[in-house]
């Protein structure tokens, strides 16, 4: 979503770095037991953060700048904090070796980073390939284009479904 929202390379790099720093902090704190948050609300808020980014994407690129455009690092940092809590749950499910907690955290974090970089690389290569094959697709994903709004509606609908599903899971 950040790839679609932020088109400037430098700002995107900063936002991705902020996301990485934030999720490293919350992942470490949650894994070491400094922050104890029940998993279901965290998962619901993670889904809500995706819905928020989709809502940002739906807004036309007009005179009034979107929150992600005004404060890209802050938005990425807040999202990173939330996602770090989700990663911590996955790490605790795998299990931390009691003797090597810092090393395990570092290794897990490096794995998450590698996964992120790989995903960004794959998304960029796929985007370039689609742009070469179907130039009209690239035009449809330009800021404010109809195709981009459809993508945003699709992601937003899915995220909203996850929010309702996850909230009903711990409220009911």
């Amino acid at each position: 979503m950040l790839l679609l929202l932020i088109r400037n390379w430098r700002i995107l790099l900063g936002a991705v770095t902020a996301f990485t720093v934030a999720h490293s902090l919350s992942l470490g704190a949650a894994s070491l037991g400094w922050i104890v948050v029940p998993a279901p609300p965290v998962e619901a808020i993670v889904a809500l953060s995706i819905a928020f980014l989709a809502a940002e994407l739906v807004q036309p690129a007009g005179e009034e700048k979107r929150l992600t455009e005004r404060y890209p690092w802050a938005v990425a940092f807040a999202s990173g904090l939330l996602h770090g809590l989700g990663f911590a749950r996955a790490l605790l499910e795998v299990g931390l070796p009691q003797g090597d907690v810092p090393l395990a955290l570092l290794a897990f974090n490096l794995g998450v980073e590698a996964g992120q970089i790989l995903f960004i690389a794959v998304a960029l290569i796929a985007g370039l390939a689609l742009a070469r094959l179907y130039p009209s697709v690239q035009a449809q994903l330009a800021p404010g284009a109809a195709g981009l709004r459809w993508v945003a509606y699709g992601v937003g609908a899915l995220a909203a479904f996850w929010v309702v599903e996850r909230v009903s899971g711990f409220v009911a």
Binding site: V122, I125, A126, L128, A129, L130, R132
Partner: peptide, 12 residues
């Protein structure tokens, strides 16, 4: 789709 698209893009 992703596998063949990326493989094609890299080879192309």
């Amino acid at each position: 789709a992703a596998f063949i698209l990326i493989a094609w893009a890299m080879l192309d």
